[in-house]
Design a binder for these strands. Structure first.
Lengths: 201, 201
DNA sequence: CGCGACGTTGATTTGCCTCAACGATTGTGG
DNA sequence: CCACAATCGTTGAGGCAAATCAACGTCGCG
């Protein structure tokens, strides 16, 4: 695990990429964020419980997932270093959450609760700007995923994921990739086998 | 079609619901927005062409859709009165668009180009705030849709849509609903038939 | 070492797609 | 005002991609 200083450096680096910050502006945010280690398998949000925090991942990997009535998991989002993750519904409304968020690797996160988040946006307009831009980018990515899910075959969706998120495919267990794509682990195994054969010939 | 004044009233009404505005603040935005009628079937964005505008719908109904290599349409989003719609990728980057946006009914929209949009957000911080909140709400809705698409059957997705967007299901042609759900019109027809029978018995 | 989780492979089933035909509705030109 | 074409929703028959169920080898870990 990295030093707390390094965690904040990572955050500043990522914010500055979209919105340059002065030292003072960044300081306003560090005082509101709680550094935390999350061990592999540990949760930062659980369905049915209010999830107060928005998390910035400084190291490791987390996932957000829902559970259907058959008890199967369905991964809605992965978050590697430099990504934000939360149960947005619960974060915004304060109501019980709709999904689980846990760590797939030993990870480090910076947490901010919704009250502090609103205060930060209201006080430092550059942060409001930063999150507006971040959410716009997320809008593009998520709408692409929706389009893929209604227009592509399982194999095409896997190839698209390999293209867009090669790192995730490398680091995460295959059954989690399958879950993210909306298919069974067996189906993904066969798809990979098919791709191997074709690319060899 | 409604009077231009009414179109701006509708916008103000919707913005104020999230962020109260003074007359001056709202004025800054009216001067940047272009009112326009969009006849049924007319486009406000086309794939491959840069789409400069973000649109607020004051009346009628629009849709955003992509076309796959077989030539089939896949609807990513509907927008009724009070909704915003754009090809966000093209709007943000200025690059050629990824989808088409056209009107399903005679409609009225207020258009703002990306330059004016950025200026508005930079000048009037309440608008930046408004869009940040709007995008957060969109985040919740779109992630729910993703979860539905990877975890629910076609019938369950249809029932969910009936629950969340009953107005859209009423107003829009069935094949468009099918397209939005990622199924064929035939499949939707059979699903509806099955539901009718069950609810009658 | 032995247990459990994971990925693979095979056999079977199934939900939805594809293709085709049909009636109902809409709108269009003569 | 009516014939006509076009579009839409429905229904049926057959096919296919992916799910399900089951068995097996491998690996990491207690």
């Amino acid at each position: 695990m990295q030093d707390v200083r390094l965690m904040f450096d990572a955050l500043r680096e990522h914010v500055s990429r979209l919105v340059p910050l002065t030292d003072d502006e960044f300081l306003a945010c560090t005082s509101l964020m709680i550094p935390k280690r999350v061990r592999k398998g540990a949760y930062i949000a659980q369905e049915g419980e209010a999830s107060k925090y928005l998390a910035f991942v400084t190291s490791g990997c987390l996932r957000a997932y829902g559970i259907d009535k058959k008890g199967d998991e369905h991964i809605v989002q992965f978050a590697l270093e430099g990504w934000w993750i939360t149960d947005m519904y619960s974060f915004l409304t304060g109501k019980p959450g709709e999904c689980f968020i846990d760590a797939l690797e030993d990870s480090g996160v910076l947490l901010i609760d919704s009250g502090s988040f609103e205060k930060l946006c209201a006080t430092v307009s550059k942060f409001e700007r930063y999150f507006r831009i971040l959410l716009q980018n997320n809008y593009v990515a998520t709408h692409r995923r929706v389009l893929a899910s209604i227009s592509l075959s399982a194999e095409e969706r896997y190839l698209q994921m390999l293209d867009i998120y090669p790192t995730i495919v490398q680091r995460v267990a295959q059954r989690h990739i399958a879950s993210y794509l909306g298919i069974t682990p067996e189906a993904l195994s066969r798809i990979r086998q098919r791709i191997m054969k074709i690319s060899k010939s």
